[in-house]
Design a protein around this nucleic acid. Structure first.
Lengths: 180, 180
DNA sequence: AGAAATACGTCAATATGGCTGACATAAACG
DNA sequence: CGTTTATGTCAGCCATATTGACGTATTTCT
């Protein structure tokens, strides 16, 4: 375990700027920047090999997590326009990662589902990122997972928290209900 | 304090997926996604008002943190090409946020410095993001700052850690030496 | 001194992922 | 039957990134 390394370093880091109570927290700002860069870098590498980008990843992820999602819901979550989504979604469909089915009650709706191929890719990407979290949390010790969840949730814009919470709860529910 | 809210929520969150030891950590993945989205959203709003984007922010941030940085160093940190940097840097210079000065020893070098105007903007952006960290950490309680630093640093690709560490240490040193 | 390497700038073409506006179609709703 | 809703699509624009080629000043090496 690289515990000695990480703990001494981060001790130094947090001490460096905690001493100036009013100044900018450059340490946190830069650490989050680099952490996120490497976090998405994991997926980027796999995606670029099949000619996809981050836009495809985001769409695939949410369709995977919310099977039967409507296009309008997807637009709402991603906060992009339907024109932007159009291209990306078409590529995912044309390449057999996602399928559309008409809504049972309202046939105007095109409900989105991942194919087996899409499921595989989504899971591969998620597990890659999960491994990064697992390694990091393992380096941090007991209780780090709950702490990290608390911290990350607290970083979210308060007005957006309820929505995020609902989104995640809904996904868990659906995943439980459909043990594909 | 919104402690009750946050702690119960994150308890539920972390419990939801900690129960499946092998499955993807969708909670962490999505929380990091939304946390980062809102983190950069703070700066985006200010930047868009003066016609700048994230590219300008990144350049301004590193020049601000590393006064006298060479163009080559900047390319190395940002991991972009000089053609990409060109436009952004020119706009920053043309609008009086950054200046170039020939290197004293090697006059081929164009060392980069922020102007007073650039300093002000960089600080404004950093303080906005710092406030988000401060609020989040306050909701998390004692010791959360050190924990967050540990966690974020552990999320960084191990092979990149030394470089990040060196970069941050260098910046702190310069900032200390130049109490402008 | 002259050649080569370095630091930087720039022109041109291309890709990706966003955007707005306008318009089309099918289905549901009142 | 007319209106609203859910979705798709065409056309054009912007920001940010890419690669490749070339130019120019300056330093370094032989």
């Amino acid at each position: 375990m690289a515990d000695i390394n990480v703990s001494t370093l981060s001790a130094r880091l947090s001490q460096a700027k905690a001493s100036s109570p009013e100044g900018p927290a450059y340490d946190l700002i830069e650490l989050l920047f680099f952490a996120y860069r490497d976090f998405i870098g994991d997926a980027d590498e796999i995606l670029s090999r099949i000619g996809f980008g981050r836009a495809h990843h985001r769409v695939l992820h949410f369709v995977h997590r919310h099977p039967g999602m409507r296009v309008a819901d997807l637009l709402d979550v991603l906060k992009i326009t339907k024109q932007s989504l159009g291209r990306v979604l078409r590529e995912l469909i044309d390449n057999g990662y996602v399928v559309q089915r008409a809504g049972p009650a309202d046939r105007r709706q095109r409900l989105l589902y991942t194919t087996a191929k899409g499921e595989t890719l989504a899971l591969e990407l998620a597990l890659l990122q999960t491994r990064r979290f697992a390694r990091a949390l393992n380096e941090c010790g007991e209780g780090a997972r709950a702490e990290a969840c608390r911290f990350l949730f607290a970083m979210i814009e308060p007005s957006a928290r309820a929505e995020v919470e609902a989104l995640m709860a809904r996904a868990d529910q659906r995943t439980k209900g459909r043990p594909r």
